[in-house]
Design a protein around this nucleic acid. Structure first.
Lengths: 189, 189
DNA sequence: ATTGAAGGAGAACGAACGTTCTCTTATAGT
DNA sequence: ACTATAAGAGAACGTTCGTTCTCCTTCAAT
């Protein structure tokens, strides 16, 4: 379909130039000799709510422009082309990062959180915080060592628990300073 | 420092409006009454290579505008404010997705890949492919069942291996159709 | 007290912008 | 073949854009 090819060209422009094209640029992109077909085409997309505009008339990138298509579960297999239209899409940054200023990434060493699915080499997205809930995975300083473990609260007793039976729970002798809470784990192959 | 506050305002604008501000908008953003201070300020940032411009003179978002700061390993603890400047930054989408058209996300059921750090509820980023290397984690259709396992090639023998001793290797009776290769695993808490 | 540099105000420029209009051409249905 | 509709060309509009220039103020160094 022609409409799809056109949209793809615009998406491609956005990915390369990191901004939406102007009508003049869309004109060149789609091979028109004047701006009005470009304008009409964009207007159609806006009517279909595929695109939106600024209050200044500038185009806004929609989900289409950065997102990954989300399929169902592995077991469900691959969707047919007919189903494909219904797929949700999302951008990883928006999905994973709620508070950019306080978010950092750390790399993981060791296997002490293995049973929680966190293994050496993984990246963890953490958000700075000095408090955390029971059961959260936290980055903390205990007796002047840095570590990442489950936080456990049992009444007034607070301790850290690894997710690997090879390691023991850590009961802080002096103090336990939580410095971040793990919000996400990312592993790239 | 004032310069930092200014940059933050611009970053904030970009995060809200999904595009870079014009000089007029920067002027309002930073509280100037004319455009030239805004122009001079931006020029300074460009000289410092903090920002860049289009060939049309438009501002381009730099890494600053979407990225997460990357710290070292967990054990290293938190960097001091002095070190903080040296931190690398990155955007997750760019880091994880190389070929947007062929990339999809799936949700994981079951614990058959547990020892590979992939557990139920995780999101896997997969890239469509009908071939894969020995040792890759693949999404495949074996004897009309969909599954995600390690791909093993031993001479002409090709089979799937779970990452959990509770499960057995899968030797395809009829055919094994690889449909995607796992590129990344994402878990959100 | 004088000077120099920097920061900001304000006006001005051509270029590019979004938008709208009319006119021509191509297309599809009958 | 005729007609209604859509698609595109082209010109034109007011606005906003990036950019540059001159002038005024502020403030620190001498």
């Amino acid at each position: 379909m022609r409409e799809e090819r056109y949209i793809n060209k615009i998406v491609q422009f956005y990915r390369e130039r990191k901004r939406m094209p102007s009508y003049g640029e869309i004109m060149k992109l789609l091979g028109f000799a004047s701006k009005s077909p470009a304008f009409k085409f964009v207007q159609k997309l806006i009517d279909q709510e595929i695109l939106k505009k600024d209050r200044n008339g500038r185009l806004l990138p929609s989900r289409l422009f950065y997102s990954v298509r989300v399929l169902g579960a592995v077991e469900a297999g691959w969707p047919s082309p007919a189903e494909e239209e219904l797929l949700d899409t999302m951008t990883l940054d928006e999905y994973l990062i709620s508070n950019k200023e306080a978010t950092f990434m750390l790399t993981v060493n060791g296997d002490s959180m293995k049973d929680a699915g966190i293994i050496a080499g993984d990246l963890v997205l953490v958000e700075r915080a000095d408090k955390a809930k029971d059961g959260d995975i936290v980055v903390a300083e205990v007796d002047s060592n840095w570590t990442m473990k489950y936080l456990r609260k049992r009444g007034k007793q607070v301790y850290l628990e690894p997710a690997n039976s090879k390691y023991k729970k850590i009961f802080p002798k002096e103090d336990l300073k939580i410095s971040a809470v793990v919000k996400a784990v990312i592993r790239k192959y």
